[in-house]
Amino acid sequence: MSYRSPCAACEFHGRRCHENCIFAPYFPSTDPERFESINRIYGARTVGTMLQQTPVHFREDAVETMLFEARARIEDPIYGSVGIISRMQHEIVVARYKMAVMQLQIA
């Protein structure tokens, strides 16, 4: 088994990065914050398990989704991404209201 320079996950845990490391394609050592955010919310073991259970062609999307949710959860520990969605829905309602008022003024 050959080794490579450690990915961000292996570097974070102070271990060697094997050529078949499940984390390496998604967590480059040049962007350690990417792994640290996901690890903080989900834990490396859970992320590894999720990646193993996800078909290879969906793994990048899975990592991006976990990263989005992890960053949202760090920013807002109570609501996470649901808080973002709620705020956006509120902004849509406000914009529709303003648009209706402007259409009435024009008419």
Results as ranks from 00 to 15, higher is better:
residue 43 G to E: 08
residue 15 R to E: 06
residue 50 M to S: 08
residue 25 P to A: 03
residue 78 I to A: 14
residue 82 V to S: 08
residue 49 T to I: 13
residue 10 C to I: 07
residue 97 Y to Q: 15
residue 11 E to W: 09
residue 4 R to C: 01
residue 89 Q to I: 11
residue 89 Q to M: 13
residue 46 T to W: 03
residue 64 E to D: 10
residue 17 C to V: 04
residue 45 R to I: 06
residue 105 Q to N: 07
residue 16 R to S: 01
residue 56 V to C: 00
residue 38 I to T: 07
residue 32 P to I: 01
residue 32 P to D: 02
residue 69 E to K: 02
residue 55 P to Q: 08
residue 49 T to D: 07
residue 59 R to M: 09
residue 21 C to E: 06
residue 40 R to L: 07
residue 71 R to D: 06
residue 86 S to W: 03
residue 24 A to Y: 06
residue 16 R to W: 01
residue 73 R to V: 00
residue 53 Q to H: 07
residue 36 E to L: 07
residue 77 P to W: 01
residue 53 Q to R: 14
residue 18 H to K: 12
residue 4 R to Q: 04
residue 38 I to Y: 09
residue 92 I to Y: 12
residue 43 G to T: 07
residue 107 A to C: 02
residue 36 E to P: 01
residue 66 M to Y: 09
residue 83 G to I: 02
residue 47 V to A: 07
residue 90 H to L: 12
residue 18 H to F: 15
residue 105 Q to I: 13
residue 10 C to D: 06
residue 95 A to L: 15
residue 41 I to E: 06
residue 74 I to P: 05
residue 17 C to F: 10
residue 103 Q to N: 10
residue 99 M to Y: 14
residue 79 Y to E: 03
residue 103 Q to S: 04
residue 60 E to P: 00
residue 54 T to C: 13
residue 101 V to K: 12
residue 9 A to S: 10
residue 97 Y to D: 14
residue 11 E to D: 14
residue 61 D to Y: 12
residue 63 V to K: 09
residue 11 E to G: 13
